[in-house]
């Protein structure tokens, strides 16, 4: 019987990461969509870094930044009693950064396509900027939010290099599905590797099919 523990762990990691990214990425994308700040290109570049860097590079820096010898890692150890590296929490922190562009870019595109018009209309009807964001921008960005959440979720499921560097391969804690597949192949257990790989392949295709159908749909009420 195939051990599905890595699958559930991957889903939990992707779920938590997507949740955090919605909270962190939305304000960041909103700021980027409206700002004329001279820091905007730098922030955009940093956000997009995970798209071009080898995951091992990111993972390496995270290993150092989150390790017990670093201020962040030491602080975490003091507060929680656990090390951040080789733990689920460490995976979450790394995944949030690793999947950030997949949350921020679709949202930023959605916000920019709305433009100033509806916001000015809302302001002229006495809606404060925060009110206008939730009552006008969010409903008009429904597809952007779904695309961003689905892509962030799927991308987190698919990560390998960062997870391996930061989390290692601890069953129940950091052995996510991609790591489990790697392990099965290493131990020549091809049947198990096939099963999990096919599972990922099919679900990734379905997710992308969903996203592209959504995009093609023009004005869909979501």
């Amino acid at each position: 019987m195939t051990d599905l523990g890595p699958l559930w762990l991957s889903l939990a990691l992707a779920g938590v990461t997507t949740g955090i990214l919605l909270l962190v990425g939305t304000p960041l994308a909103w700021w980027l969509s409206g700002t004329n700040s001279r820091f905007k290109p730098a922030i955009e570049a940093i956000t997009a870094l995970p798209l071009v860097l080898p995951p091992t590079v990111l993972g390496f820096y995270f290993l150092i930044a989150l390790g017990p010898a670093s201020p962040i890692g030491a602080f975490w150890l003091r507060v929680t009693g656990d090390a951040l590296t080789f733990s689920f929490s460490g995976l979450v922190v790394a995944s949030v950064f690793y999947s950030l562009p997949f949350m921020v870019q679709p949202l930023q595109n959605a916000f920019e396509s709305i433009g100033r018009g509806p916001l000015e209309a809302a302001a002229s009807l006495r809606a404060s900027p925060l009110d206008a964001f939730f009552s006008v921008v969010v409903p008009l960005s429904g597809r952007g939010f779904i695309t961003a959440a689905v892509l962030s979720f799927a991308h987190t499921i698919g990560e390998f290099g960062v997870v391996l560097m930061v989390g290692g391969n601890i069953p129940g804690k950091t052995r996510v599905i991609s790591i489990a597949i790697y392990e099965h192949v290493e131990t020549l257990n091809y049947a198990e590797a096939h099963f999990l790989s096919a599972l990922l392949l099919v679900s990734a295709f379905l997710v992308l099919l969903f996203v592209y159908t959504l995009r093609r749909g023009g004005r869909v009420n979501v």
């Binding site: 018009g117 008009l140 004005r219």
Partner: peptide
Amino acid sequence: VGFVFQDSRLFPH
């Protein structure tokens, strides 16, 4: 102030 825009800017949702 109330503002009536040339392009009406009704909320489509």
